[in-house]
């Protein structure tokens, strides 16, 4: 079956295999930032934004994106032009192995859209579905608070 959707601002018209997950589809389309840590909706490494809201792409059937907007971390910024939120993660020391990072960043992005001035506790509550085994979460929370400050100061896009 063919599905039409918008991926990181660009239209996509692709053949989807029966039963294919959004995770598999996106990786097939080259979006390797979308990681499979569990494949069962329990780790958050496969998080992408669907119409701006975080979803677990491993649990989302590919056809569900028909006519919708999908954002992966590749869509926020690039190596030579990273998004401020991506810079904040590096500056705060929130990236260790980096396997959880794309999902964390997208979830944090959605949080800051909803709430530009979250408390540390609110950040933790919002990120509860995204596991990280490396950092102990402290520097991830720091990164989101730093990014929130930058956003309020107008350093955003």
């Amino acid at each position: 079956m063919r599905v039409y959707f918008e991926l990181n601002g660009k239209p996509q018209y692709v053949e989807v295999k029966p039963g294919e997950s959004l995770l598999a589809l996106l990786r097939r389309l080259g979006m390797k930032s979308v990681k499979e840590g569990c494949g069962m909706g329990e780790c958050g490494t496969c998080t992408v934004l669907l119409e701006g809201k975080p979803v677990r792409s491993c649990l989302t059937f590919a056809p569900k994106v028909q006519g919708k907007r999908v954002t992966t971390v590749e869509g926020l910024g690039s190596v030579n032009d990273p998004h401020p939120l991506q810079r904040a993660f590096v500056e705060a020391g929130a990236v260790q192995c980096g396997f959880c990072t794309p999902g964390m960043i997208l979830t944090a992005y959605a949080l800051l859209e909803e709430n530009p001035d979250p408390t540390p506790q609110e950040v933790r509550e919002y990120l509860v579905g995204n596991l990280c085994r490396c950092t102990g979460y402290k520097k991830i929370v720091d990164a989101v608070l730093l990014a929130a400050q930058w956003k309020r100061e107008g350093q955003w896009r």
Binding site: L76, P82, C97
Partner: peptide, 14 residues
């Protein structure tokens, strides 16, 4: 971190 930005921007490094 030397690989920080590549990881945060989701480069295919794994």
């Amino acid at each position: 971190k030397v690989d920080g930005i590549p990881l945060a921007t989701g480069q295919p490094k794994f």
